[in-house]
Amino acid sequence: MELKDALVELLRRAATDLPPDVEKALREAYEREEDGTPAKAVFRTILENVRLAREKSTPICQDTGSIIFYVDFPVGEKEEVYRKAINAAAEEATKKQYLRPNAVNPITGKNSGNNVGINHPFIHFHQWDKDEVRIRLLLKGGGSENVGAQYKLPAPELKAGRDLEGVRKVVLDAVFKAQGKGCAPGTIAVAIGGDRVTSYMLSKEMLFRKIGERHPEPEIAEFERRLYNELNQLGIGPMGFGGKTTVLDVFVDYQHRHPATFFVAITYNCWAFRRKTLYIRNGEVSYDD
């Protein structure tokens, strides 16, 4: 298979076929809500929409997001080959209505019409020692991107200091402020440490974890569970209609920081949590969620 064609298929799958772990979490959320509430009706609509989108091969959500690729490729290969194939695939997937044209020039206001623009699709390249290629794709919704937040600890207005307790407070603050606007229930990725750029980088990449997958370190895993429980006590519910599920999961990770800084980056992913992975091994293409 041509690389470009394999990438068009990757884009199609990501836009139209919600990963099973996400769908399962949504189904469990549906079952938790009381009959006759707007929250229950929302989850019913969401699940019906997920089924229809997969069946008809049309986008789950019309906002098919920012297109973010993570390409791991063998030493000696050229980045340019992947970049060209990705741009061509984005253009073709847009023509086929798997993607909405989502690349807008911020100076002129003009939409490029084909999803190709400066740094769009965005590609994180990484050369690795393996003989295989892994291409991971995230379609990140714009509405939920708007409710993400980066905090600088200490944050006196929240009495949040430079420790896990401080992190807990800013995460509560961010999800409270988001209300239903990020298409709740969200999946929350919290990166602790790093600089302005790397904190968001780490939190975005965490979105390749599966729902329910805990951090390998017990202390962080316990912190994730606590945040999950507390955020769901906020009662914001799906779409902000009130309800038992405000977040589907919380992922936390950390990296070393400069002594003078303490950043916490929080990425909010809408319920339509769209990610897929493609592997090329011995010339064979395979896909995973």
């Binding site: 969401i46 229809l52 959500c61 809408c270 319920w271």
Partner: peptide, 13 residues
């Protein structure tokens, strides 16, 4: 009126 965010295919129907 609030519609269900993300329910793109269902609403298009």
């Amino acid at each position: 009126f609030h519609a269900v965010g993300g329910a793109g295919t269902l609403i298009a129907n």
